[in-house]
Design a protein around this nucleic acid. Structure first.
Length: 423
RNA sequence: AGAGGAGUGGCAGAGUGGUCGAUUGCGGCGGUCUUGAAAACCGUUGUACCGAGAGGUACCGGGGGUUCGAAUCCCUCCUCCUCUGCCA
């Protein structure tokens, strides 16, 4: 959520940012926000003044009562009755304005960083770099959904039987590959100085609002209605919310956390040819890195995270490219996002395996995540996160890219974790 | 899940209708003293909103209510503790 004061002070920047996002009627929308905020301020000032009067009368009544002057006390009570009514009306106006303001602010996306290219869709994303060479598979060119059957390592039909579509069952070497990847990713993050956390995978409403999944995207989350809890779509939600309503001291920054969790996404209506096999699932595993930084350091941290994720892909010997997402393709809450995509050689397409974003103060404003600087004043920190990494598409790429006459060769770096070198 | 108890400032812990945003202690910060430190003493020490400022308003787990006035009374939800039950 953007700060109203920021909209006021940086009006032109915010307006240009929304236009880069193709936000309709940005100008009149922003003016409406400011008008509502003005209205809120006015009613609040009036309300506070009346309340001040009422408070002092109440004190007076108290003193009169004590000194036994009942009748005088009764007389001035009449005035407070009137004040009470007026305050109540102003309160109603005020909270109405506040709610409307909040509703508007919730619909405004984050302002893109100046380096974000304009554009409408994924085609307008900027390719920052490509790394590695695409393997020539020759006659061994099965897509992963056939490989998993051939080697009997992941079973979608069993998942359908016990749960439904998009909930695969990993078996044998398939299960061990999952476990190896999770451990590899966690160990790498540990070595890079991230603190490992294991958060709950169900979260309450407050947490959903904190990171921006609510109120708009509740359709994407599984909802345990009996307890009003949501299954997390990403570990970003519980990990970032660890710092909700927290005032850190400056020396605590940066906070660097890593966590492995299963992730759950309903992905309503998105089934089709592009989402076969492991490409899109309702439940999948992901290791996530989260950083809370000083506002001056967040872009530095973003670059670090991008290099870190690239390092993982290099160690896994996967060809990848890095995209800088355009204004139209970026997530709602992000100011700058890099997507990492690996090339899936049998499908002959790029698959997104990581998304690394800087949210600046967009999340921390909702979260009330602040730190106290040297001047003793509190200010909002910046939050960032990235996948490091999401498993299914990594598995798809490893299986497809490394297939050959003798089965599927495993990346060297995983072999100590796996206990085998090929499937 | 049932019965009982409790949630107050960074922490501990007073406060049961009226000058209470809240006694006190510890911790933190600043100072006096000291070559330096400790001790002692003095001062200071929550967050947010409105206001140019003076200042005002709100917050004692969350929400609602009673009252001229609520940390204090009532309702409701949440959390923690104790006992019983169940369970990995």
């Amino acid at each position: 959520m953007l700060l109203v004061n920021h909209i006021r002070d940086q009006f032109d920047v915010v307006l240009a940012g929304l236009q880069k996002r193709n936000f309709p009627d940005a100008l009149s929308f922003l003016n409406q926000v400011l008008a509502l905020d003005d209205q809120r301020k006015t009613t609040q000032t009036q309300r506070d003044q009346l309340q001040a009067e009422s408070n002092s009368i109440s004190k007076e009544i108290g003193m009169l009562m004590k000194s036994g002057k009942r009748e005088e006390a009764e007389q001035i009570k009449a005035r407070t009755a009137q004040l009470k009514q007026e305050i109540k009306e102003l309160d109603e106006q005020n909270s109405k304005a506040e709610e409307e303001l909040k509703a508007l602010l919730y619909t405004i996306p984050n302002i893109p960083h100046s380096s974000v290219p304009a554009g409408k869709s994924a085609e307008d994303n900027e390719v920052v770099l490509e790394h590695g060479s695409i393997p020539a598979l020759g006659e061994y060119k099965l897509p992963h959904w056939e490989l998993i059957k051939k080697y009997d390592i992941i079973d979608f039909d069993l998942g359908v039987k016990i749960t439904g579509a998009g909930f695969p069952v990993y078996k044998g070497k398939g299960a061990r590959l999952q476990r190896a990847l999770i451990n590899f990713f966690l160990d790498e993050a540990l070595n890079a100085g991230f603190l490992e956390v294991q958060p709950p995978i169900l979260v309450n409403e407050d947490s959903g609002y904190g990171t921006g999944q609510l109120p708009d995207k509740e359709g994407q989350m599984y909802h345990a209605t009996a307890d009003n809890l949501y299954l997390i779509p990403t570990a970003e939600v519980p990990i970032t919310n660890l710092y909700r309503d927290v005032i850190l001291s400056e020396e605590d920054l940066p906070i660097r956390n890593v966590g492995y969790t299963p992730c759950f996404r309903r992905e309503a209506g998105s089934w089709g040819a592009h989402v076969r096999g492991l490409n899109r699932l309702h439940q999948f595993d992901k290791v996530e890195i989260v950083q809370i930084t000083h506002p001056d350091k967040s872009y530095e941290a973003l670059e670090e995270m991008s290099s870190y994720v690239q390092g993982l892909l290099q160690k896994l010997e996967l060809p990848y490219r890095v995209l800088r997402l355009c204004g139209g393709d970026m997530g709602f809450t992000s100011a700058l996002t890099y997507d990492m995509e690996v090339f899936s050689a049998a499908q002959e397409r790029w698959l997104e395996v990581s998304s690394v974003s800087n949210f600046e103060t967009y999340q921390t404003n909702r979260l009330k995540l602040r730190f106290r600087g040297e001047d003793k004043k509190t200010q909002l920190a910046h939050s960032l996160n990235g996948s490091a990494l999401a498993l299914p598409r990594i598995v798809a790429a490893i299986l497809e890219n490394n297939q050959g006459p003798d089965g599927i060769q495993m990346p060297k770096v995983l072999q100590p974790y796996l206990g085998f070198d090929r499937i």
